[in-house]
Simulated scan of single mutants.
Amino acid sequence: MKSQKAYDLIKEKSKELFFSYGLRSISMDDLTNLSGIPKRIIYRHFEDKNALVRAVVKDLIESHERFFNTCKASAKDAIDEVIKQNSEPFEIWTPIRPRFFFDLENFFPGPWNDLEHYKLKMLEGIVRNLKWGREEGLYSAHLNEVFIAEVRLHQLVNCLQPQLVETKKWSIHKFVVEFTRLYLHSIATEKGEKLLNSYLESNGLHHR
């Protein structure tokens, strides 16, 4: 019989190892030896390594999506939604080393496609926010929404590159804040600028 507690423990131990050493470097035997979880328990919950990797990626996506949905539901306006997105969801990616994404793309096509599909959902959410901001008069009426959304998505994805963070000695959160500031200032109207500056001030995000 499957146990939710065991299922969650296997996923958490797998994340620690996969994020640190990559997917190819950690075998199911390694997982058993390093986590102390018997192999028979692991295979009771996951039929193979691909299923385990898929579960780990699904967890990452769902935690990110839940937070973004919360931001959408609680936002007063389009700018407020983007500002709210500056916090915690990106910190969950901090422990992930570059090898994890390399292995995922090259050796685990199913989970990688899940991640790529989620990026398309993120793109749709950015376009929706841009339309909302234009309707409110907070964003420029002359935006190429598809192009701007692509740029914003690349900003967010680049924030998840650990080697970039290490080079500049910045946290992922710091990168997100700086990219977001740049993004919003580039698309805001005069009305939007006033509101943006008010939000940045109240959230302590203005440059000192």
Results as ranks from 00 to 15, higher is better:
V56W: 14
W112R: 08
N129C: 13
A55I: 04
K15H: 09
P162I: 07
L130C: 03
E193P: 01
L123S: 01
R181K: 15
F18E: 14
N144S: 10
F90S: 06
K13N: 04
H45N: 11
K191P: 02
H173W: 02
L123A: 08
H142Y: 06
D77H: 06
L196R: 01
R128T: 09
Q85G: 03
L17W: 12
L164A: 02
E47I: 10
N144G: 08
D80N: 13
E201D: 13
K84F: 09
F147G: 02
N106C: 02
V146F: 15
F108L: 07
E116I: 14
S35M: 14
V146K: 12
V157Y: 10
I187Y: 12
I126N: 14
L34Y: 14
A78W: 00
S35N: 05
P89C: 03
N158F: 11
T180C: 06
G22W: 02
L200H: 10
N203L: 04
E178C: 03
R24A: 10
E81T: 09
E62H: 07
K174P: 01
E16F: 15
G22M: 08
V127N: 04
H142D: 12
L115S: 12
A73E: 10
A78N: 12
R66G: 08
T167H: 08
K5P: 00
D103F: 12
F147D: 05
F101Q: 12
E135K: 08
N158G: 12
L196Q: 06
F101D: 05
K169S: 05
G125V: 04
K76C: 11
L60G: 15
M1P: 14
G192E: 05
V53T: 11
L120F: 09
G137S: 13
E116H: 03
P38L: 07
K15P: 03
I126F: 13
L104I: 13
G125N: 11
I172W: 00
